[in-house]
Simulated scan of single mutants.
Amino acid sequence: MSSVMDALMTFSFAAVLLTLTPGLDTALVLRTAAVEGRKQATQAALGIGAGCLIWGAAVAFGLGALIAVSELAYDILKYCGAAYLSWLGINMLLKPRKQFAITESSDKPSSNWFLKGVLGNTLNPKVGIFYVSFLPQFIPPGHSPLVWTFGLVAIHMTIGFIWSMILIGATRPLASFLRKEKVIRWMDRTTGTIFLLFAARLAFSRR
Rank of each mutant, 00 (worst) to 15 (best):
A44S: 14
T122Y: 06
L24A: 14
F114S: 07
A57E: 04
L123C: 11
R206C: 00
T19S: 07
F134K: 08
R179E: 06
L174K: 06
V69H: 12
A65Y: 06
G128S: 14
I184D: 01
Q99I: 10
I166S: 00
V153S: 00
G23K: 07
V118Q: 07
A101N: 09
N112G: 05
S110Q: 11
L135Y: 03
W148T: 05
W113T: 02
N121Q: 10
V127C: 09
G47T: 12
L8D: 05
K182N: 11
Q40A: 14
F138R: 02
M1C: 05
R172Y: 13
V183F: 13
R201L: 07
Y74K: 06
G47L: 11
P145V: 09
L94Y: 03
F100S: 09
E104N: 03
A73F: 10
I76C: 15
L17Y: 08
L196T: 00
M165N: 00
K116R: 12
G81T: 01
L202N: 00
H156W: 11
T171V: 12
T171S: 04
S164I: 04
V69C: 04
I166A: 09
F177R: 01
G37Y: 08
A45L: 07
G192M: 00
A7K: 14
L88T: 12
S144R: 13
L88P: 10
L152E: 01
L53S: 03
H143Y: 15
L63V: 05
V153P: 00
F138V: 05
C52L: 15
G151I: 01
F150M: 06
L135I: 15
S205A: 15
A83E: 08
V147F: 12
W87F: 15
D75L: 11
A15I: 12
T26L: 09
G192R: 00
T32R: 03
A34M: 13
L20H: 05
G47W: 08
G120F: 08
I48H: 08
L178T: 05
A34N: 11
I166R: 01
F11A: 08
A175R: 11
F177A: 03
L24R: 10
H156N: 14
M1K: 07
L53Y: 07
T193P: 01
V147H: 07
A175M: 13
Y131T: 04
R179K: 02
T10A: 12
W163M: 05
K95S: 13
F134L: 15
I90W: 15
T158K: 04
Y84M: 13
L8Q: 03
K116N: 03
L94P: 01
A175N: 03
S2I: 15
A27F: 02
S133F: 11
V118M: 13
S105K: 10
K180R: 15
A203V: 12
H143A: 15
Q99W: 07
A73W: 07
A101L: 12
L53D: 02
I184F: 03
Q40P: 03
L77D: 01
I159V: 14
L146E: 10
F138W: 05
I139G: 09
L196V: 05
V132I: 14
S133K: 11
A60Y: 04
G120Q: 06
S111M: 14
A68K: 14
G160E: 04
